[in-house]
Design a protein around this nucleic acid. Structure first.
Ligand SMILES: [Mn+2]
Ligand SMILES: [Mn+2]
Ligand SMILES: [Zn+2]
Ligand SMILES: [Zn+2]
Lengths: 155, 155
DNA sequence: GTCAATAATTAGAATCATTCTAATTTTAAA
DNA sequence: TTTAAAATTAGAATGATTCTAATTATTGAC
């Protein structure tokens, strides 16, 4: 209920730093979107980010959300995750990890890697240079009937 | 130039078998689409499959290509691959493997796994049951300038 | 502080892959 | 044959994302 719902600035400094490293400005919209991403550990779609940010900042536009997500990905603060043919999802956990996607309820979950991503048993051809490795696992949250089916991505 | 360009039936038997196992019929369209997928080791988009199949069978429709690809995936003859936000691609290599995606030219390449997919260093939470593991690697084909940039997916 | 240049934001249109719909054709059984 | 189910088709609809053109905010000289 407090009127001056300012975004906490613990992250603002890191955000400003990373943005400026990429020649980008720190704006209120970018701050809000980043805050929204950090507020929950789920993997919202652009549209979900839009709705949540709009709650804090009603005048923000969808275009800005897309632009901002793109900016955050470009300056290394957010990862892009692709699960199936559904909407691209975004993740602000920058540790090496992979994604679990529940086919029952749509929930996306981070899964740690026990070793470094380096020692994966992949035989990489010499003529290919890898920049990024993405691992996604699809399955079910729990025994069928247990997970919150069809209620994906609500806040 | 030969008039009776029939699809080779080496694969037709396997196709018919797998289809019937899923309660699906073997049709000429399905045979052609499957043949098109096997003819090249690249990873065509639905649209590319459509164009190639159309060359063999001019009356086929886009809807049928989508339906057929879906049928082939459902009966375990084709894998669906998702690279970035681009069009979904399809693969008829059913071995455990991962995909390399060249960010320069759009080429998608299969990469073998040296070990089984089982012994990957992933710490799987007990309350999650995995059905499928997808690994995609993005990078560049060769030293920048060498790969056939911007000429993805041509036949 | 003013001004120009640049960056960011905005609404809405455009694009593009995919799915849906409703009508028609084919196939398999009875 | 007749009939029912399955498959195919053209085209419309959907939905995520990108593009466009106009407006607003920042920045850095001056
Ligand atoms: Mn994540
Ligand atoms: Mn493949
Ligand atoms: Zn679930
Ligand atoms: Zn390449």
């Amino acid at each position: 209920m407090s009127e001056h719902s300012k975004v906490p600035s613990v992250e603002a400094s890191e955000l400003a730093k990373k943005l400026s490293e990429s020649g980008l400005r720190l704006t209120s919209q970018r701050e809000h979107v980043f805050h929204v991403l950090r507020a929950q550990t789920d993997h919202p779609t652009a549209d979900e980010v839009y709705l949540r940010t709009k709650a804090e900042m009603p005048e923000i536009s969808m275009a800005t959300v897309y632009n901002t997500l793109d900016a955050l990905v470009r300056c290394g603060l957010v990862k892009q995750v692709n699960v199936d043919r559904a909407a691209t999802r975004f993740c602000c956990n920058m540790e090496d990890h992979c994604h679990f996607y529940c086919e029952e309820c749509g929930w996306v979950h981070d899964i740690e890697l026990s070793g470094g991503i380096r020692d994966f048993p992949i035989r990489m051809p010499r003529d290919l240079s890898a920049r990024q490795l993405d691992i996604s696992i699809r399955g079910a949250c729990r025994n069928p009937g247990d997970c919150n089916r069809k209620s994906a991505g609500s806040s």
